[in-house]
């Protein structure tokens, strides 16, 4: 969906080259990509096409080898590690394929974690966490440990954690990859609802069925954008 507003994210000529054993591997080559506020975009492509690398760069977990990356109009490609962490904490919410909840922490503490790193006061954190858990329907499980939840429930908690800090964009890496079809469908439904309520979502998936939930699908192949298609 292109609503004509300024892009939230703009990638221009982004490349990523990995050096391994003196061999250069071009994971991404000349990527141009705009993501606008409120957009629900999926990135699809075969295994090894650069989807996760692109998501890492979008999420400021990694830096491009070349090109520029602008987030909310600010260049972020060459920021320091600590500065990228600070922006990541405020602007980006991650949903991982394997949930990535911390086993020693309760559901509440897992969701609270990004807010803790932000230095938010405890009372404020509580209200943010409660709201996020309410949104995913997991408030009643706040005191449980991740190991006491089903996979679908764990992923809902992971979504709550991504939402809790009210980020500018949610980045989801194969969010249904570790779930059965029923739970997978439920998570996709949750993302759809979030999008309908205004969230910007960028999701990596190799499952065409789930890619269709997005308004726009970008196809990658060999590190290049080979198709950028809006939903019918």
């Amino acid at each position: 969906m292109n609503n004509g507003s300024d892009p939230l994210i703009r990638l221009s000529s982004v490349t990523k080259v990995f050096l391994t054993d003196e061999v250069e591997t071009h994971a991404l080559s000349g990527i141009h990509l705009d993501i606008r506020p409120g957009e629900y975009m999926s990135i699809a492509g075969p295994s090894g096409c650069g989807k996760t690398t692109l998501l890492s760069i979008l999420g400021l977990l990694d830096t491009p080898s070349d090109g520029s990356y602008s987030l909310k109009g600010h260049e972020v490609a060459n920021l320091s590690f600590a500065d990228r962490a600070r922006i990541r904490n405020r602007e980006i919410g991650f949903i991982f394929q394997s949930f990535n909840l911390i086993g020693d922490l309760t559901v509440f503490e897992n969701v609270e974690l990004p807010l803790t790193y932000r230095g938010m006061a405890a009372s404020e954190r509580k209200s943010f966490v409660t709201e996020a858990l309410d949104r995913v329907g997991m408030a009643h499980r706040a005191k449980h440990l991740p190991s006491q939840l089903s996979g679908g429930q764990q992923q809902r908690v992971a979504v709550a954690r991504a939402l809790a800090g009210r980020p500018a964009i949610l980045l989801a890496d194969e969010p249904t990859g570790n779930l059965d079809s029923r739970n997978g469908e439920a998570v996709m439904q949750l993302l759809k609802e979030l999008h309908e309520n205004g969230a910007t979502i960028c999701m990596v998936t190799h499952d065409e069925r789930f890619a269709q939930h997005a308004d726009r699908t970008v196809h990658l192949f060999d590190g290049r954008v080979v198709e950028d298609r809006m939903a019918a």
Partner: peptide
């Protein structure tokens, strides 16, 4: 390592 990676992904700074 993995847990620390998650924490960093969620915005923890190196000092934290």
């Amino acid at each position: 390592v993995r847990e620390i990676g998650i924490r960093l992904a969620l915005g923890a700074r190196p000092a934290q």
